[in-house]
Structures are given as C-alpha cells and as structure tokens.
Design a protein around this nucleic acid. Sequence first.
DNA 1: CCCGATACCTTGCCATGCAAAGTATCGGGT
DNA 2: ACCCGATACTTTGCATGGCAAGGTATCGGG
Lengths: 128, 128
Amino acid sequence: MSEDTEASPGSATIARLRRELARGTTELAVLSVLGVRRRYGYELLKVLRETGEGVLEVKEGTLYPLLHRLEDSGHILATWEAEGRARPRKYYVMTAEGRTYLAMLRAEWSGLVDGMRQLLDTLGEVRE
Amino acid sequence: MSEDTEASPGSATIARLRRELARGTTELAVLSVLGVRRRYGYELLKVLRETGEGVLEVKEGTLYPLLHRLEDSGHILATWEAEGRARPRKYYVMTAEGRTYLAMLRAEWSGLVDGMRQLLDTLGEVRE
DNA sequence: CCCGATACCTTGCCATGCAAAGTATCGGGT
DNA sequence: ACCCGATACTTTGCATGGCAAGGTATCGGG
C-alpha cells in the first residue's frame, strides 16, 4: 500500500487521468448492475470493485450522490428494508424509464468505443 | 426569450450524456493525432470531426484551452508560423514527455474499455 | 459590402468525482 | 468492558473539464 506522493505539479498522478477518462462510466456501470437485479448501495460498491478487474474504483462519495440523482430523475426506485436486526439497507430497483435510459447509455458507450478505436487504428496506420 | 427550456427535469438531452462519457477522451484523441505529425489547432478541429465517425464532436472552447494545458504541462510544443500571407497558424508538436504520457493514456483507456466490457458481459450472463 | 470560412482566444456556468468527515450498529479480539 | 474494523448511508466543499457564447482579425466570393 505504499503510495508515493508524486510531488511534481504537472503530474496527473494517473489518478486524475483515470478519473477523467472514467467519467460518466460509473453511471453506466451502476445501471447495468441494477439492470440484472436489485441491490443496495454498499453492495453495489463491492460488486463494482470486484468486477471488471478493479478498473472502476468507485468511491462512496461518488456512488451515493449518483444513486440519489438517478432516483430523482426516475431511473431507479429506492426502498428501505430492515432484514432481521441488521443495519437497514436501501434497496434500489430499476424503473421502465431506467431501462430505456440504460439502453441509450450502452449505445452511446459502444459508439464512443468504436469511434475511438477507429481513430486510434487510423492513426496507427499513419497513412496519407 | 424562447421558452422551450427543456422543461422535463430528468432529460439528459443525450448531449450531456455523451459529454460526460467522452470526458477526458478528447485529450487522448488530440495527443494521438499529434503523435503522427504536427498540426495546428484549427486543423485538429477538422481532423477530429472527420475521424471516428463524428463521435468526437470537439468544440473550439474545448480544444484551445486543452492545447494550452498540454503545452503548460510540457506534453506538446507550440510555434507560430506565417506561411505566405495567410492567417498565421500555431503549430503543435509532441515532446518526449508527451509520448510517454500518451502511452499511459492509451493504456488507461484500453484498461477501462476492457474492464467495462467484462462488467457488461458478466452482467449479460446474469450468472449467480 | 456583407457573409462565410479560416484561425485563434476567453469568460462564466454546469456537472461530476471524491477526499474527508459524520452518524450509527454489530461482532470479534484482548 | 472496550476498541476497532466492517457494515451502511450521508453530506460539504474543492477541483476539473466541457462548452455556449462572444471576441478579434483576415481573406475571397457573390
């Protein structure tokens, strides 16, 4: 866990780099997971961290506000549930609008990926 | 005074969606193009719009500040050139640091793409 | 003479990510 | 008994990039 402090100012520390690249991606990831079945926040946190080879290091400060936004916009629905005597959990399920939105997100994502691949491939050939 | 204002609250207008997803991507695209050979700003604008099936709708207000940032951080170098009597152009070339940085960016990007694919594929199987 | 294309620049707002810090409970180790 | 880490959710405040919008300036056509 020895994380050096990377003093140099211009250094993006990779972290910023990754952050900016992955921007917006979390929303797609969360909705995709919820698309399969309902989950509660903390569970999502773990699922997302374990899947995709840890590329998506979702933070609490990112996930919870995101869930609230998705709820406000009607893409997901929340319900508190207290199973047994454990900490009450807030379960989220997708709405019909959420599924439509997810489909759009997926389309946008694959479009972006394709576009970038074309761009990078074309440049790789260095033709012209 | 047009009162359209897109009343519906949740409507992301696709544009915002695309914007957030593509965040950070522009930097990779720009550096990739400059990695092949030098270009001037306005030229980059056109190249980026024509390549990748127009997925990357780079705006002036995005490109120019980005170029300045990349210059400030030493990833690219700028030189004004007045060919003939035309508008003077600001040409950009990559530096050694820029190439190293580009390699990192490329790695991050493909890592993200792979991770997302795995995540989406896994969910597609709905196993468990 | 006006307009569109070329070519560059800047201000100001918006949205997201997240470090950090807070609340509260449960179970295990010492 | 007590502390600590894990569970579970929340919030404030800063940083950053995208970009609409508005500028400057020149050149060539209609």
